[in-house]
Design a protein around this nucleic acid. Sequence first.
DNA 1: ATGTCC
Length: 465
Amino acid sequence: MNRKQLQKLGVPPDCVKLAVQALTRAAQQDQGFGLKGKRAKELVGAVLGEPRAYFEDSVWGEFAKELVADAEQPALSNIDYRTWGDEIDDAAHAQMRQACLVPTAVGAALMPDAHLGYGLPIGGVLACENAVIPYAVGVDIACRMKLSVLDLPVETLDSRRNAYKEAIMGGTRFGVGVEHHPKQQHDVLDRDWDVTRITREKKDTAWRQLGTSGSGNHFVEFGELTLEARDDELGLDAGRYAALLSHSGSRGPGAAVCSTYSAIAQRNLPRRYANLGRLAWLSLDSEEGQEYWAAMNLMGEYAAANHAVIHRLVTSLLGAHVVAGVENHHNFAWKEFHHGKEVVVHRKGATPAAAGELGVIPGSMADPAFVVRGRGEPSSLCSASHGAGRCMSRRQAKDTFRFNAVRNDLAKRGVEVLAAGADEVPGVYKDIRRVMDAQQDLVEVVARFDPRIVRMCGDGSKAED
DNA sequence: ATGTCC
């Protein structure tokens, strides 16, 4: 009997392989019994009819157990999600509805900067029970923000402009595959990179890329931080400060971890869930799930180290010291308690916003970023947006904007862009002020950061220096 | 967002 015949008989697709193995064993034990025989059909039919009666059978036991396990696989969920903001496209909603079908999903929310992503939309928050979804964390695992407030008078942003520009140009590296020469040092290299094969193999890449910014929406910029009132936790009085803000992640190694474990998850995805595709999950009880969890957390430390090195290099070139700081992941998964039970909360392009938790939400190269304090709103799973959110694709942006023209406009508005592409100009983003208005119940604004000197990945160069 | 992976 072949696969097709077995399935016609009622064998679930995920059990066909074991049925074939059982038939082969049966044929070996009984010389007069061929695989095509009517008897084969009868035997398979009998096991299908009462699988539990065959659990101890040396020929049919394994197949029988798989039949029962397959029937007991959890059904699709169908949970609800709340949405903040009203400028979210249908495609992002469609992805969120798919995510709400994931069998382990128990909570979901969509942030006001949401837009289309792989698997879960960017700006999507998804809580699962005892399972992790690599593509609900995202390709750039632990993509993150870091703000450092400097001990230099805010006026030096103008009076010492060249020193600031040289510090950014000398201390940062942008581009796909870009590395530091010589390699930088950080304690993260002393962590255990042998937790998975892929982290072991990517450790040297990680070292070479340590302290680099990559491409896309990543940036390093100087700007002016304004506090309307003293903030004790930040340790800053009301006033204006020179500050350094960066957006970067786990570079090549994080992408390799994501693709490795999402491929495993998708390969293991039972056929009945096939249309969930890139939302494939790994049980935290499985070896693969534990490996991903360990690798993801290492990438979290690595991304934090990248920012630490960037800030170390840039502030050291500038001759500045750091007097206060805020940082947070916005592509990550955490074990947290919500509604009385422990769940895995995936935030993919979403800022953790538990009550009292500080975070940074950037706008665009010309619009303000905000230091925020979470309000711990339960229905958002204690989350907020991670930025303004794109309202135009990179492709469309290249056809719509000429970067040099935009750059001249921005210069008149007091923002000097050292390098960037047309796909990251302010016009490709929603209005950050509207996005902040839409999430007043999620975060309170602690400070505003206005960009003054900005570096992103330049156009037409994949590995510029 | 990354890098060219049988």
